[in-house]
Simulated assay, not measured.
Amino acid sequence: MSGNNNAQYFDLHTNAFGFFNRVRKVVPKKGEPFWAVDISACRGDAGEKTYFDCNVVGKEAIALFEQHLANFEQGKDVVTASLVIGDLRVEQFTYKSGTKKAGQPGVSLKGRVLRIKYLKVNDTVVFNTGSEA
């Protein structure tokens, strides 16, 4: 990259459809607050689930969270979405005490919600770009 001032990087994007769980606004001690969500993405003809833990970074996606999910109630609200997840990576962790797996290693799929194409809260479609999932 010598002699070139253009930043170069590789994109890894995943298109998904799934359910939102644990919608939350994270307020760190340092830095700006941000939205986070756990996603149960459907795959295969039987709708098996793959789980992602994501931060919401796309401007339009953040606006949709602010407008439609600020009062999300876990266990009461059902939210489905078609979305684009970027920067997928695996993070290792150790299960905390108080769980059946306490002390055992685990992995989590992490990513960033870049864009929402379709958003349904309970029985109401609140956003739809009209593009395919």
Rank of each mutant, 00 (worst) to 15 (best):
F17T: 13
D53R: 15
G130K: 04
E60A: 13
F93L: 02
G47S: 12
K76P: 00
K49V: 10
L88A: 03
S97R: 10
Q67I: 13
S2P: 05
I116L: 14
K25P: 07
I116K: 02
G3E: 09
G18R: 06
M1V: 09
A63M: 03
V56C: 07
P105L: 09
E48H: 15
Y118P: 03
E32F: 13
I39V: 14
G18Y: 08
G98D: 01
N15Y: 11
T94M: 03
V107M: 14
D123E: 15
A41Y: 09
P28Y: 03
R89F: 06
H68M: 08
D38Y: 02
Q92S: 12
K117F: 06
E48L: 15
N15I: 08
S131K: 15
Q92Y: 13
T129W: 14
F65H: 07
Y118N: 12
G98H: 07
T99M: 05
V126Q: 08
A41E: 06
T50R: 14
V107R: 08
N21E: 12
V23Q: 05
A46G: 11
M1E: 13
K101C: 05
K30M: 10
F19P: 00
T124L: 13
V90S: 12
V107P: 02
D87R: 15
A16G: 11
T50C: 11
R89W: 00
A81C: 07
A102Q: 05
R22W: 05
Q8E: 12
V125I: 15
D38M: 10
V23E: 10
Y51R: 14
F34D: 03
H68E: 10
K49E: 08
K29V: 00
L109Q: 09
Q92W: 09
E73L: 11
E91N: 09
K96N: 14
L114A: 03
S40G: 13
N21V: 09
V90A: 13
K49A: 02
I85G: 04
S97T: 05
N6I: 10
H68Q: 07
A70W: 05
Q104C: 06
C54E: 03
L119A: 06
I39D: 00
A16T: 03
K30H: 09
A102G: 00
D11F: 08
E66V: 11
N122L: 05
N128L: 01
V126W: 07
A81L: 07
A102I: 01
V121M: 04
V126T: 10
A41T: 08
G86P: 05
A102T: 02
E66L: 11
G47D: 04
C54R: 04
A41D: 01
I116H: 03
T129L: 10
Y95T: 02
F93A: 00
V57M: 12
R89Y: 00
S108H: 03
K59C: 00
N122G: 07
K30I: 10
V56T: 01
T94V: 15
G3Q: 14
Q74A: 14
K59G: 00
K96M: 01
Q67D: 11
V27N: 09
G98E: 05
K25W: 08
V107F: 13
K59I: 04
E32Q: 12
S40P: 00
P33W: 02
S131Y: 15
K30N: 12
F10E: 12
M1W: 14
G58H: 06
F19V: 11
I62F: 04
G44I: 11
D45F: 13
K49D: 00
K100Y: 00
G86Y: 08
A63C: 04
R112A: 04
A63D: 11
V78F: 15
K110L: 05
S40L: 12
